[in-house]
């Protein structure tokens, strides 16, 4: 858990000896892996915001005579069973995936903050209750929890997002609670209290920011995780329904034709892999940056 320890400037001396043994590190932006990852995420973000800039063909436009065409200059990723351009569908699918990934993370985080703050600040009783709730949620594997929610509330992008969000909530909540507990007992909170700041001000200005800082790493990794989960649900036929372009749903449709049209699965698949890999690289990088920042 050390990587998630609070890292405000005033506690830095405590960790200084550790930093002495750490090898000198290149500054973040010079690492080529990090740059590539950042670039990949930027491209996906661009695809999500303005897909028309990257792909000129309509992702829903069918060309019956051109179904199952192999990748070519005209269709760099080939065409699918209706003759739709797979490249356009991958580009347009970015928006769906990103919205679901970000939305789910936001939902998970909001729920986690409420739970974690209640547990960390609400006294013994609240803490016991919150811990139990988290444990119950933890008892279900995330994807199963998401499946249950979709089974109850039906298939749509919205339920897919909420389902993935709720499924990711316990992980965040446990982290927030631990963080709040440790920040609450820190010297600078003590100092703020003795300066006569109101509890609300202490919560908003001191506890929340210091709780959040280590969470940024987790969030970056979490978005990637949420996108993979959303794709998994799409692959299982839950969530976004055809003909909407969504990476997981595209994988599912392509699976049936994998012996005759490998490109239908390969390109959405590799996109999911590269994108989540990029997010992970960035997350790890931020993590190291936070650590060394704390050490400075």
């Amino acid at each position: 858990m050390t990587i998630l320890a609070p890292a405000p400037e005033d506690t830095a001396p405590a960790q200084a000896p550790q930093a002495a043994f750490r090898p000198a590190r290149r500054t973040p932006l010079h690492s080529p892996g990090f740059c590539l990852a950042l670039g990949a995420v930027a491209v996906v973000a661009l695809a999500a915001v303005a897909p028309g800039l990257l792909a000129h063909q309509d992702p829903l436009e069918i060309h019956l005579a051109e179904s199952f065409d192999a990748p070519s200059l005209q269709h760099p990723f080939g065409t699918d069973q209706s003759g739709r351009d797979v490249y356009s569908r991958v580009v347009h699918g970015a928006g769906q995936s990103l919205v679901i990934g970000l939305g789910a993370t936001a939902i998970g985080l909001l729920g986690a903050l409420a739970l974690g703050l209640a547990g960390g600040l609400g006294g013994r009783f609240a803490d016991v209750a919150v811990t139990r709730v988290i444990e119950v949620l933890y008892a279900f594997p995330g994807i199963l929890l998401a499946l249950i929610l979709i089974a109850v509330y039906g298939n749509s992008a919205m339920t897919q997002m909420v389902a993935v969000g709720v499924a990711s909530m316990p992980g965040y909540a446990r982290m927030v609670r631990g963080q709040v507990l440790s920040v609450k007992g820190s010297l600078y909170v003590e100092a703020a209290r003795s300066l006569g700041h109101s509890p609300l001000r202490i919560l908003l200005r001191t506890i929340l920011p210091n709780t959040f800082r280590p969470l940024t790493v987790l969030i970056t990794l979490g978005i990637g995780q949420a996108i993979v989960w959303a794709a998994a649900l799409g692959f299982l036929g839950m969530g976004v329904q055809p003909p909407t372009a969504e990476w997981g749903a595209m994988l599912n449709a392509g699976r049936n034709y994998i012996q005759m049209a490998w490109w239908m699965d390969f390109f959405p698949g590799i996109t999911i892999v590269l994108f989540t890999l990029s997010l992970t690289v960035i997350g790890r990088h931020l993590q190291r940056a936070t650590d060394s920042g704390a050490a400075r």
Partner: peptide, 21 residues
């Protein structure tokens, strides 16, 4: 019917093609 195995994938394609046409 969107239950697993009920609508053959090719029929689902037909529905989508029909929609687009």
């Amino acid at each position: 019917n969107s239950d697993p195995g009920e609508t053959p994938p090719a029929d689902l394609t037909i529905y989508q093609n029909f929609q687009a046409m």
